[in-house]
Design a protein around this nucleic acid. Structure first.
Lengths: 325, 325
DNA sequence: TCCCCCTATAGATATTTTTTATGACCGTTA
DNA sequence: TAACGGTCATAAAAAATATCTATAGGGGGA
């Protein structure tokens, strides 16, 4: 004989309604079943909790004592349960997210709008960082989820692909290279280059690509933020190499954006998570929103899209070229 | 799918030991049974609580949140249960008792000694009162148990017989009536009588007995306490009529104690309780002790004992005569 | 590669719970 | 006073549930 939650709830109900029969109705069981449950609870405690009378049931002193402790206990348990169910239903919760700056400005806002539409109560706590830091934050459980370049970290981490990104060169429309649909690395090497700092994964990809052509890169200028590079490019300080999904590209509609290569410089951006660990429901919801948003960018899987439109010598706004060339 | 105490305890155990297998051992079930229980709890909440790894199990964020609320809840529930079990085992509890003064001085002390021997933690809160008040206190639940004359109150109250009592006349050994083994009421009517106040059930019995012989009683003196009557009798103020079980009789070993009648004046003293209601365990224990003590007074049921020993004209202490003549 | 540690699954078996049907008791009403 | 409508208790059958045994599958360390 052991104390069960069902038994305690049954007792509480009988106590409140003063009758086995009525309580049984409310509990959606028959009166004999309830009688048995109460008997088992009494046996477990070794005490008579209710005195049965022809008019119903009323608590003994022990029953009243139990009820006094029990009611707050049940209330608190129910609160705990429903609070967890809120978590499960995404009515509550915060996602701790670490994301690349390019994603934070590009893909993320749309995903967050999507998330707000479906789960208005969820909050996102965003940390902008570079890929290595993102990996580390996910590993250390400082965040629930990361969005970073897929470097196949293995071990504790796994990366689910989200979208492909390519590096674009941002240059004045009247620049000699702007006439090309894609700019070979060899031609770029002689130009004044505006690059991100060496700890970003974009910069690493650029360095590696140049290394493969046997060249060292010596940037004319480095910056931490893509926006800074774009601003410098607009000021005519050189050619900026920036990820195609960065929203900062829209800051410079008057500049020409050209893919590199062939071969181009591409990377896979994905969701970084602890492998074998489940995501909190809120993080799961954000991940879904991110995947949905990413699907809009590259609707048909991993397409080999067309090269950018030929540059027109106008200052009119131009759509950002598709991400996948 | 519903949240059960078993499931919550299972979860708590897995969390503490970080392994389904080890937790299952501690819970005395097999690992598959535990797996099923945890799965059901997770289904009830709609949440994954534990991430299963090849090294064991560790909590998700939701699991940690549950554990935080759960542990104090389980602790408090266990405390409540064991506290009630203490009550059941008579390791805790107080009896609220209302008793006649004659019982309080006569039968009760022995019963309380008995109670202390078997259940040293129990306390008795004693209220001395006359029968009518005792009935009223039991009815109003001011006390758990009463000891009073059985007047067959019916209704909400029931009286379990405890012992039979008779009225004794207490008189100087050299008094003319002391030579009789039993004193007829008719002879008493001419004496100076020392009686309890009219609200006592003893007095009522005496009045009724005299009424049946066609006489009115006019006491020489009335008192609230038996001890007072005994003192007056010792001082030669008259003949005291007192219940045979009152310990105050021992105050006057030099006086002769004689039954009345025939017919004698008898009453049944019993345990008064609310009918159909169970006694608290502590009260049950006291009731047992009282019954055991009463059995000592009248070992063989309701015997018709011998008349009191013929009075001897000495001042030596004499045992109180048996209650049932 | 093997072995040992994890957990999950499936089917058979126990166990427990619930229902149905009935009885006994009390107070009220006709 | 007999019948009725309410109470809870009981017992046997049926249903639901929990548990065990046996086995599978995965990962880490020797």
């Amino acid at each position: 004989m052991t104390v069960t939650l069902k038994g305690l709830r049954a007792f509480n109900t009988v106590l409140r309604y003063g009758s086995f029969t009525r309580a049984a109705g409310l509990l959606h069981i028959t009166q004999p079943a309830l009688t048995v449950q109460i008997r088992q609870l009494e046996a477990a405690l070794g005490l008579r909790l209710l005195d049965r009378t022809p008019q119903g049931a009323e608590p003994t002193a022990a029953g009243r004592e139990l009820a006094r402790s029990l009611e707050p206990l049940l209330r608190e348990l129910d609160h705990t349960v429903s609070s967890l169910q809120d978590l499960a239903a995404r009515r509550r919760g915060a996602v701790r997210l670490a994301a690349l700056p390019s994603v934070a400005s590009g893909l993320l806002p749309g995903a967050m709008a999507r998330l707000r539409a479906t789960h208005p109560e969820l909050r996102v706590r965003l940390h902008e960082a570079v890929t290595g830091q993102i990996y580390e934050m996910v590993r250390a459980e400082q965040v629930d989820l990361g969005i970073a370049t897929d470097l196949a970290p293995g071990g504790e981490l796994s990366v689910d692909p989200l979208f492909r990104d390519q590096i674009l060169a941002l240059l004045p429309p009247d620049h000699a290279l702007a006439g090309l649909a894609a700019i070979p690395l060899a031609r770029l090497a002689k130009e004044r280059l505006l690059l991100l700092e060496p700890d970003s994964s974009i910069r690493r990809l650029v360095d590696e690509a140049f290394a493969r052509t046997g060249r060292m890169v010596t940037p004319a200028q480095e910056a931490v933020h893509t926006g800074t590079l774009v601003g410098m490019a607009r000021a005519g300080l050189g050619i900026a190499l920036v990820p195609s999904t960065a929203a900062e590209l829209r800051m410079a509609p008057e500049l020409a954006a050209r893919p590199l290569g062939p071969p181009g410089i591409r990377r896979m951006v994905g969701l970084v998570r602890r492998s074998g660990r489940s995501l909190p429901p809120a993080a799961e919801a954000l991940a879904e929103a991110l995947r949905a948003e990413a699907a809009l960018l590259a609707p048909s899987g991993q397409p080999s899209g067309p090269p950018p439109a030929a540059p027109r010598r106008t200052g009119r706004p131009r759509p950002v070229p598709p991400q996948e060339g």
